[in-house]
Amino acid sequence: METIVNSRIKQVLKGDQNAYGEIVELYKDKIFQLCFRMLGNRHEAEDVAQEAFIRAYVNIQGFNQNKKFSSWIYRIATNLCIDRIRKKKPDYFLDAEVPGTEGLNMYSQISSDHPLPEEKLVSLELQETVQREIANLPEKYRTVIVLKYIEELSLNEISEILDLPLGTVKTRMHRGREFLRKQLESI
C-alpha cells in the first residue's frame, strides 16, 4: 500500500489532483472516523477531515517520503481536531433536546451509514453512552484512546503521530483508560 501511495504522491508533486483523489479514497474513512470520535458529530467531522486532506495537499512538498503517509495525515487531522476542540467549547450537547422538537436529542441527528443487524440494535444505547464518554474525555486522553482503540494504531505510531515520547503516550493511555473505566463502571 505504501508503494502505491508513494507513486501517487510523486504524481501529486507534479500537480496531478486526480492522483490525490486516489490517496483520499484510501484514507478517508480512517480520517473521518478519527475526526468523528474526536469531535462527536458528523458535520464537524466532515469539515475537519476535509480540511486535513486539503492541508496535506497544500503541504505535500514538506512530506518526507521515507515516512508513512498515514502517520502524516493522522497527525494533521489530530492537530486540527485538537484545535477545533480548544477553539470551540461545545455550545450544545448531544443529549440536549433539539429546539422545537419533543424528545428528539442530537443523537437522533447522527445517522449511521449501515443499518444495524437486529441483535446490535439492543446495544445501540450502550454505544451512545460509550461515544458520549469518549467525547467527555479530556482531549489529550481522548486522542490516544481513539488512535489506539478505534484506529487500532500501535503505541509507537501514536508517539510518532503526536510527536510525543513513548512514555508520555503510555501515561496518557493509562489515565484515559482509568477515566473511562470510572465513567463506565456502572454498566
Partner: peptide
C-alpha cells in the same frame, strides 16, 4: 472499558467526501 470502546460501530466518510476535497 476497552471492549466497549472497540465495539463502537465504525463510521464511514460521506459518499461525496473525495469529490468535495478535490
Amino acid at each position: 472499558t476497552i471492549a466497549f470502546v472497540q465495539s463502537t460501530s465504525h463510521v464511514k466518510a460521506p459518499v461525496d467526501f473525495t469529490a468535495n476535497v478535490i
